[in-house]
Design a protein around this nucleic acid. Sequence first.
DNA 1: CATGGGATTGACT
DNA 2: GTCAATCCCATGC
Length: 210
Amino acid sequence: MGLRADLIGARSHVSPEAGSLGADFYARAVLDVARDLLGCVVEHGGCAGVIVETEAYHESEPACHAFVGVTPRTRTLFADPGTAYVYRSYGIHALLNAVCEPPGVGAAVLIRALEPLRGVERMRERRGGVGDEQLCSGPGKLTQALGVELRHNATSLLDGPIAIRRRALEIEPVAPVAVAPRVGITKAVDLTWRFCLAGNPHVSRPRPSL
DNA sequence: CATGGGATTGACT
DNA sequence: GTCAATCCCATGC
């Protein structure tokens, strides 16, 4: 069976996800969580996609919002593991992160791209008729496609409106993981804390070389 | 209270 | 390749 190329729509009736990820999953080192979130499914309001790109951020490095400590903006980053950190970027886009590491440690995984899985028609409506490979190929695009907004900041990914689930074992992705520097930052640019499913067409630009 | 800078995107040269 | 849009908030006076 074609498990790789024809995910869109074809598996809508297969119930492809196992249970929601627990707090213990997110409480680990943020780099491990970023890597392990690849292949998991993000769902909101009937729309869902497979995570194909992530980045890790940690309070110990200056590209992370939590580097400055606890402020009204960064408070969520220090909350319980498995909390959604949603913030506005460049005045326009809402970016979705999963808070990681033990409570009190400011760290999160930025969800940067999805392979659309369910609710694709609704995503197309929200995204204004772009091609299916552009529906969720960026952190601002995927929140627009899923209808994730700033009001979801600080909600739980364990039992809240946004869910992240593991997929069933038989359809776990087998693609190798590409590791690269993070996108769009000006500090700590040398850290290779970006993770992508290599060769997946829904990864954002710039595509990491294999 | 004023200012400046983004974990981006899409339109345009 | 360049660039503007547009909002939240950190910082400094």
